[in-house]
Design a protein around this nucleic acid. Structure first.
Lengths: 136, 136
DNA sequence: ATCTCACTTTAGAACCGTTCTAAACAGGCG
DNA sequence: CGCCTGTTTAGAACGGTTCTAAAGTGAGAT
């Protein structure tokens, strides 16, 4: 099982080290969507001398190498939207700009049938590039 | 037009003040999804003596009163997810826990047909409460 | 017009999550 | 051994946000 983790690191081009293995052992197995700080405190239980910077470095490295994802809508600071009606969001990966997408232009099915969850609200978050307006 | 804004504040139970009107004038009209800091610098152009704390207070008040939304997936710190396959997310509003939702269990249509956007990736972000597992 | 009370605003400190910096460390190889 | 490259470390710095304590404002009562 430790070998699996080691293999995962090597497969993604991450040079292994004791600290990186310790981080990987927790973060690749959990379903908790932990924050970096949570990773730090969990890993420190079994590896008390690890530093905060190493955990941050390691997590960022893992994301860069594709071992992890860091799903986030905004990436840091809160944004405000005066459009209080239901709508979706499109994030332009080039500029970072966020655009509202009308509710009707995307159709989402099966949400109500979701096993185990009572969904009271949802939205589609899209990423991509804004297309230059075409001559119609 | 200033009256519209005043009316919006009053309709939502926000006691008006010069500063709140200045913030509202910008943030209720824009489509820019500004951060709080951007609001601060824009408003300060026409209202140089406003303080940062007032802008933050005002924006939070507006969100609380339903004049604005602050759409965010995580609400601050980055979370990490070892599931690198495509999937959706469900956020439990009670506990804040984030759950993965299998890609197949929700169907999204019309994304490709979206006028003006080349969508390279998307996910559905759901909110609600996790239902107690039913006896089947 | 003055007093008062509740609310708002202010500047700056504090806070929290994250990144940076500079130095120490580890290990493979000449 | 000594070097080189990459890794880890502690702590400082940073950026966005919230807190604090004091000052300001305004509507109603007198």
């Amino acid at each position: 099982m430790n070998e699996d983790i080691l293999k995962a690191l090597l497969d993604h081009g991450v040079q292994p080290s004791a600290q990186r293995l310790a981080v990987a052992r927790y973060v690749l197995a959990t379903h908790d969507h932990p924050t970096a700080d949570r990773v730090f405190s969990v890993v420190r239980e079994s590896f008390p001398w690890i530093s905060r910077a190493t955990v941050y470095n390691t997590l960022n490295l893992f994301v860069e190498k594709g071992l992890l994802r860091a799903p986030a809508l905004t990436g840091g600071s809160v944004v405000f939207d005066p459009n209080t009606a239901r709508h979706h969001h499109f994030i332009d990966e080039k500029s970072g700009a966020i655009h509202d997408v009308p509710w009707e232009s995307v159709e989402v099915c099966n949400i109500e049938a979701l096993e185990g969850f009572d969904v009271t609200d949802f939205q589609v978050v899209m990423r991509g590039v804004k297309r230059r307006r075409r001559r119609t």
